[in-house]
Amino acid sequence: MFEARLVQGALLKKVLESIKDLLNEATWECAATGISLQAMDSSHVSLVALNLRSDGFDKYRCDRNVSLGMNLTNMAKIMKCASNDDVITIKAQDDADTVTFVFETPNQEKISDYEMKLMNLDTEHLGIPDTDYSCIVKMPSVEFQRICRDLSQIGDSVVISCTKEGVKFSAAGDLGTGNVKLAQNANVDKEEEAVVIEMQEPVSLTFACRYLNSFTKATPLAPQVQLSMSSDVPLVVEYKLEDMGYVRYYLAPKIED
């Protein structure tokens, strides 16, 4: 028997919104430690990895590991039936071919349940090595979203250049060029407004706007985003979920032909 109850059900809605652009289907791996998911987008260019720790749920029971393969478009249809202040419970029997979502209003006066068919997905799991990154940038997630959106008007790619002083995002296209520079700024009133750079050595890497824009669907999940970069290895874009886990996206830099 698997059962996970989240009073803050809106969080689950946001998690789904953050991955459904990239993934049509995925397997939610449920274990005693929590729920995890790892999947590549259909073109195998980017990877999504997320973790929701069991202690972040208000009630969590997982007698044995279960793999819940889901069509995420269908899951999103069901999640749309939950209000933002609903309590959400996910339930599945061992070896079941369906999953049940229960939505309760905070006053318990309305309880809805939706049963969805599960899929048997042939999932490839990739091992992600621990990496010491040359640059780690922490910045407001809304700012990152804004920059990705703005620069994708200029070109298909964004060059992210990071030094100790700051981080620069650049794009070039038929109409001209655009640059956005952010200075390191840890002395702000609110922690979430800080731009903090941990640099071992400077990097300058090129990434596809299309994927960066998809990653920013996770913006509502966290006030800050963390970009980890090294030459010739995939960028990690991480959104930390308070007391719960993370959503991470991996994207390899473009290579000059």
């Binding site: 490839e124 091992g127 090595p129 390899a252 473009k254 290579i255 000059e256």
Partner: peptide, 14 residues
């Protein structure tokens, strides 16, 4: 021009 490598070429299957 630049090429977009696949993520699967960076990480090993487990």
């Amino acid at each position: 021009t630049s090429a977009q490598p696949k993520i699967s070429s960076y990480f090993q299957k487990t």
